[in-house]
């Protein structure tokens, strides 16, 4: 985990399945032994339908691996994702990947995933690949009941799921970070040490990720952030996808597609 892939592939593949699982949420799967073999959690691929009116590929995290089959969970935002959602089984798609460094190894045995919306995508693959003795909880911030997806998928992998909605219409009420904070405070009460042996992982809207990073700092936790930035190539050549990082005196722009997309929260300069 956590290194730049040795092997990157470019393939044109027929879509196996492209299914709507909730309003605006889809899962697309492709059969690719080559990419499936090398992929690890936190990595992504660039997708572009063979017949497409957009120019650039769009980055999507690997959501699931089943043998030779890789799946992607995506949400419709704009033109590219809408077009993707219209691709039918058997129609072809160009894909290049696996890309980026995935999640890093950790010696901690308790993991908390903090996801906002479609940011949940990389955590299913991470849960699939987690060693047996890891205790996992997903804190899943959603808009409403309709987005309460994937509970069974995570539970089947022994990952507990806690849904959080802002208005309390489903699961816990408030911000997803409130739920995590509550849990951390409880932990502190039941133990003597001030150090909580938990690794945080987060993926979702920028503001949520920033709030999780602050929480991690406050509670002295390790925190891995799957970061998103507008991408051109996904390969590390356009320098378009950068994020400011603590590196040297003045900081430095690092490529989300190559040095990331997973960064330690305290490495990012949160602006």
């Amino acid at each position: 985990m956590g290194k730049i892939p040795d092997l990157i592939f470019y393939q044109t593949l027929p879509v196996l399945k492209n299914e709507k699982i909730a309003d605006k949420f889809f899962i697309l799967s492709l059969q690719t032994a080559e990419m499936a073999r090398g992929a690890f959690p936190g990595q992504f691929a660039m997708l572009k339908p063979e017949r497409s009116s957009v120019l650039l590929g769009r980055p999507y995290s690997v959501y699931k691996r089943e043998g030779d089959i890789l799946s992607f969970l995506y949400k419709i935002y704009g033109k590219g994702s809408r077009e993707l959602s219209r691709v039918k089984s058997g129609e072809k798609i160009n894909i290049w990947g696996p890309l980026g460094k995935g999640f890093q190894e950790t010696s901690l045995r308790e993991w908390a995933f903090v996801a906002g919306g479609v940011g949940v995508a990389p955590f299913l693959f991470l849960a699939q690949e987690a060693p047996k003795n890891i205790s996992m909880t997903l804190y899943f911030g959603i808009k409403n009941k309709d987005q309460a997806i994937l509970q069974k998928e995570f539970e089947d992998l022994n990952c507990k799921v806690i849904f959080v909605t802002e208005d309390g219409s489903y699961g816990e009420k408030g911000w997803v970070t409130d739920a995590v904070k509550k849990f951390l405070d409880q932990k502190l009460k039941t133990q003597n040490s001030k150090l909580i042996p938990i690794e945080l992982f987060t993926c979702g809207p920028r503001l949520m990720e920033k709030a999780v990073a602050q929480l991690a700092q406050e509670y002295h936790l390790r925190c891995q952030v799957a970061f998103e930035e507008y991408m051109g190539c996904g390969l590390g050549t356009c320098m378009g996808c950068v994020v400011k990082c603590h590196n040297g005196k003045e900081g430095q722009y690092e490529r989300v597609c190559r040095e990331g997309p997973v960064f330690m929260a305290d490495h990012i300069v949160w602006e």
Partner: peptide
């Protein structure tokens, strides 16, 4: 160092 994002 280059320009601040969003760059593209």
């Amino acid at each position: 160092k280059g320009n601040p994002p969003q760059r593209i």
